[in-house]
């Protein structure tokens, strides 16, 4: 199991701050970064290039680009072309940083014609899967969308069933599961061998707030009991709102340290109980 924190790297100062945060967390072995790329922002590649050697020293995973990206767009459309360009960029850096996998969303936009969107998303998956293969990367399909935003393409059962039909592995976003009222324990049980990673964050059951792990209605104790039971090797990525914006405060860093400590304690207990 590797613990990651999800970050955007918006500018040099911000990136330096983040890297010093990791320095602050030294003592916790194998903490890495999940990079949330922002290729739609001009000059973003330059930031990655500049910090590439430093980043290469860390465990790295990559999220696929989110902004200006949607895999349920028809092939041949402008949206599809832009999506693929952003993905190529992300895959290129992910491969250079030996990320191993890419977190993948079947869709981002609001649902219009669900069957048609799913048909297109699965058709597009063939091409994006080929592209990922060519970079030596595996796609981890995430449970995406929030009911309140009307962009949930697959409900709980559809999402679980998808993996009976595909050979792919998945990433479970605990916040999305919580605000879509999924039975997270059941999903973890049914998909256990396919779950490679979690986006761990909390909310109050309606909006995708990306809160700290204890700020919300997701029962963290129950999550770790199920984690221990079904997926004791899966990675955990803290995907917090404050880490996805450049206005991170010293206080934030302090509580991230607290949360990292908590997750460490829980996962160490899992590892100890397995020995």
């Amino acid at each position: 199991m590797t613990l990651y924190i999800s970050v955007v790297l918006l500018d040099e100062t911000w990136t330096r701050n983040l890297l010093s945060l990791l320095e602050n967390l030294r003592g916790y072995e194998r903490i890495g970064l999940e990079i949330f790329p922002m290729f739609h922002i001009g000059g973003y590649s330059r930031i990655l290039d500049k910090f590439l050697p430093k980043l290469a020293e860390l465990p790295i995973t990559f999220h696929e680009p989110y902004y200006e990206t949607d895999h349920s767009c028809k092939r041949g459309s402008v949206e599809y072309r832009v999506t693929m360009e952003h993905c190529k960029n992300a895959f290129d850096y992910a491969a250079r940083l030996r990320a191993g996998h890419i977190v993948y969303h079947l869709n981002n936009r609001a649902i219009s014609n669900k069957d048609e969107m799913l048909r297109i998303a699965l058709e597009n998956l063939i091409e994006i899967n080929d592209l990922a293969d060519s970079y030596g990367l595996k796609l981890l399909i995430e449970n995406t969308g929030v009911s309140a935003m009307n962009n949930v393409l697959l409900d709980e059962n559809d999402f679980v069933d998808l993996f009976d039909m595909l050979d792919h592995d998945c990433l479970i976003d605990t916040g999305h599961a919580n605000c879509n009222k999924w039975n997270l324990g059941s999903v973890m049980e049914r998909l256990q061998g396919r779950i490679r990673s979690y986006h761990l964050h909390n909310n109050f059951g309606a909006n995708d707030d990306h809160n700290r792990i204890f700020e919300g209605t997701l029962d963290l104790g129950e999550f770790f009991r199920n984690y221990s039971r079904y997926t004791p090797d899966a990675d955990i990525v803290l995907e917090y709102k404050c880490l996805l914006t450049p206005d991170i405060m010293n206080d934030d860093i302090e509580w991230i340290k607290e949360d990292v400590s908590h997750v460490r304690r829980m996962t160490c207990a899992v590892e100890t109980s397995r020995k």
Partner: peptide, 12 residues
């Protein structure tokens, strides 16, 4: 693998 519920894509 063949599953009890057949696991077919409903839209395909």
């Amino acid at each position: 693998m063949v599953f009890q519920n057949y696991a077919l894509f409903p839209h395909m």
